[in-house]
């Protein structure tokens, strides 16, 4: 079982390394990910948002719906931890009362 799993993981490494041959080189300016949307966002940041930090401009202006969902996600995580730990804390007390 252990050997089977190790063989599977080694095969997965080989598969990922083989698949990476199709990806663009490191730091390639002509890669599709660097050509499609980001130059447009950089120009729009300079002309419309007029703040130096590109990351803040994209995070809180162009993609602010995304960040809104993000804030809801971490808020929900806090509430989930609160509910899980508080409910399981109250259970022994009720058992002790009976």
């Amino acid at each position: 079982m252990k050997l089977l799993m190790l063989a599977f993981l080694a095969g997965l490494v080989a598969l990922l390394v083989w698949a990476s041959a199709d990806l663009p080189d490191r730091a390639d300016p002509d890669a599709p990910a660097n050509q499609h949307l980001s130059p447009e966002l950089t120009r729009m940041t300079e002309s419309e948002v007029v703040i130096p930090n590109l990351v803040s401009a994209i995070l809180a202006d162009f993609r602010s719906y995304d960040t809104l969902g993000e804030t809801f996600v971490i808020f929900t995580a806090g509430l989930a931890v609160l509910l899980v730990l508080q409910r399981s804390r109250r259970v022994p007390e009720e058992d002790g009362d009976e």
Binding site: N34, P39, L41, L54, V55, I58, L59
Partner: peptide
């Protein structure tokens, strides 16, 4: 835009 690293992955990974 070629003078700056691509900011979009930074934003996505920040979140």
């Amino acid at each position: 835009p070629d003078d700056y690293v691509n900011p979009l992955p930074h934003v996505l990974m920040l979140t």
